[in-house]
Amino acid sequence: MKKKILLVEDEPTIRRLLLFILSKEFDVQAMANGYEAFLYLEKNNIPDLIIMDWVMPQMDGNAFLKCLKVSGLYCEIPVIVLSASKGIVEELDSLPYSISYCLRKPFDPLKLKQTIENIFNTSPYGFVN
């Protein structure tokens, strides 16, 4: 069975590119912002991994990540942040909750796939704390 990935990316071109790159190996569901992603999660759709942009409309990455990490249902899902924002590493380091990995845009698709595999191979459950 394919691992499930929730992709949260507001830029249509990047969203389509990531779907193309990842959908051969993974079951990928794509949402345009954090609000849509939470509606998806609330329908009992629990992914093995979330890949998310940091700067998004309606619910940005910070708000979405905070909601994930303070929830009892979604707090253990590993998260990869993709961002073109300068200072993203420092911003993420200052948060009271952690992510699994951060990749700066533009990113190398092979590096992203390797990062995903590393996360899934870290523990028998696919989770990284």
Rank of each mutant, 00 (worst) to 15 (best):
K111F: 07
A63C: 14
I116C: 11
D48I: 05
E42D: 07
E91S: 10
D10F: 04
Y40F: 15
Y35F: 13
R104Y: 13
K4W: 06
Y74H: 05
G87P: 04
N45C: 15
E11V: 00
V55Q: 12
F38I: 10
Y40L: 04
E90F: 13
Y101L: 02
E117F: 14
N44Q: 12
F127H: 12
F26V: 10
E11Q: 11
T122D: 14
A63D: 06
R16K: 15
I116G: 01
N121Q: 11
N118H: 07
I51E: 00
I119Q: 05
L49K: 03
V55T: 12
L39E: 15
S71Q: 00
F20G: 11
P106C: 09
L73N: 15
G34V: 07
I51N: 10
K111C: 09
K113N: 01
S94P: 04
E90G: 11
E11K: 10
S85M: 14
S23T: 08
N121Y: 02
S98F: 12
A32R: 06
G72R: 00
E25N: 12
L103P: 10
V28Q: 08
M31E: 06
Y97R: 03
Q29G: 09
L103A: 05
L49F: 00
S83V: 01
L95T: 04
K4R: 14
L19N: 10
D60V: 00
I21L: 10
M52H: 05
L95D: 01
A30Y: 06
I99G: 02
A37D: 03
L92K: 03
L68H: 10
I99N: 09
F26N: 08
K69N: 08
K66V: 03
R16L: 15
E76N: 13
F38G: 08
M52L: 01
N62K: 15
F127E: 10
E36N: 02
N118M: 14
P109N: 07
A63Y: 00
P78S: 02
D60E: 12
L49E: 03
S94H: 03
L110G: 14
M52G: 02
D93G: 09
L110A: 15
C75N: 15
G126Y: 06
W54F: 09
A37K: 10
V128S: 06
V28M: 04
F107G: 03
I99H: 00
E25S: 07
L92Q: 02
I80L: 06
K24N: 10
L17D: 14
K43V: 07
S123D: 06
K4D: 07
D53W: 05
V55L: 11
M31S: 09
L7W: 02
Q29N: 14
G126A: 03
L65E: 04
W54A: 08
V128R: 11
I51S: 01
E76A: 13
L112P: 06
A30K: 03
G126D: 01
Y74F: 05
I46Y: 14
I14V: 13
G87L: 05
F64V: 11
C75V: 09
P96L: 04
M31A: 13
R16T: 15
